[in-house]
Design a protein around this nucleic acid. Structure first.
Lengths: 208, 208
DNA sequence: TCAGAATTAGGTCGATTGACCTACAGCGTC
DNA sequence: GACGCTGTAGGTCAATCGACCTAATTCTGA
């Protein structure tokens, strides 16, 4: 049941992901993420985390000796999960053509922003925090680098012209993130935006 | 630099020396915006505002009776200034072709995000706050509606096919906002992203 | 079985916060 | 000269914060 930190280092060595941390640590990070989403950076306090997790303040501080440690671990886990979500999506859809794959990916990406999902709320907080926190900023940048490459791989494969690959990444990543904060102010419904963006991706793949 | 708030009705107040009040209010809002940018929502406190503005806490509270009132006034003023900036930009550039105007606008828009400008830092904070604050969210949505329409007007004029107008807005606005948080993770330098985005806008104007 | 490590309980501490309050100076008006 | 309003000063208040501390308790491995 318990077994905590000694194993942490061991597991983390392997291929850099998905380490099994203790149950309590997971509960703490769950609560921290939830609090960040609901109340923002200012509302994310050690006491509220303890309250939400059903433990004492000192116990939370036993697992994470400072608030900043909670933040770091929380961000690390969150971006890993987002990456895993994308990988799952790309494995699920066997669409045969680049256009079909692009459209499927784009619809999924935009629908997150459309509904102001939990994920988007969390990212808004992380963007703000990353303005002032180098560690969070580095995690975000690394996540985006990986995420955008995975998207382009899915849509057009990995062995096409690298310049085309780069352009697809440089279109999809900013657009997805920006859509999540501007969706409510756009004149077109999501479906039409998705169609337009799909067309734009295709125009990159086959320039006139 | 200021010139924004004059129109809000403070002038035609009965008591004399009404401009005194306006001046102090502006100083307070300047300090609040600066604090938001530097220290985030959590670091924006009434006492720090007073400290920065060189007045007593009670004096700040005389002009804005609660922290939330400061926030509202600050956001109102900020989005007004950003809109004025865009209008200035569109008036300055007399480029004759849609492509030249689009490129000029895009270069300006992306360069903000590229350098993590003050404006971008503030918007990151506002996005986070707007997840939990209806008033801020409404101000942001209104700003984006107006801003994206101004951009499309500038690039293609106001009397083209409304569907084309809507598509240009729906491409530029999300991309600009998203670029400001993903620029560091994109494989292409800003210039190439600007060229690509310009091409994409033109492909919307003249579909094959 | 039992020493020591892992975990939990229950505080204390100084610092900071927003809201609120009273006092008072300067001013124009009645 | 009394009054009312604006603006400023200075302070109180309960609430909350992160960090830290000590002691008890539970678990584990030799």
């Amino acid at each position: 049941m318990p077994l905590v930190k000694q194993l942490d280092g061991d597991r983390n060595r392997m291929a850099g992901s998905a380490s099994h941390r203790s149950d309590k640590e997971q509960v703490i990070l769950d609560c921290a993420l939830n609090l960040l989403k609901e109340t923002g950076d200012a509302g994310l306090t050690m006491r509220k985390i303890a309250d939400c997790a059903g433990m004492r303040l000192s116990n939370v501080q036993y697992y994470f000796k400072s608030r900043d440690d909670v933040l770091k671990a929380m961000v690390t886990r969150h971006v890993e999960e987002c990456t895993a979500d994308l990988k799952r999506l790309t494995r699920e859809d066997p669409a045969p053509t680049p256009r079909a794959r692009a459209h499927h990916l784009i619809r999924a990406g935009l629908s997150h922003g459309m509904e102001l999902s939990d994920m988007c709320r969390i990212f808004r907080e992380l963007w703000a925090i990353s303005s002032r926190n180098t560690i969070v900023r580095d995690h975000m940048t690394g996540y985006y680098l990986n995420f955008s490459a995975l998207m382009a791989d899915f849509v057009i494969g990995e062995d096409v012209d690298p310049a085309v690959h780069d352009r697809v990444r440089s279109l999809l990543l900013p657009f997805f993130e920006g859509y999540s904060v501007t969706a409510a102010a756009l004149p077109l419904p999501m479906e039409q935006v998705a169609d337009m963006l799909t067309d734009l991706v295709m125009s990159i793949l086959a320039p006139r």
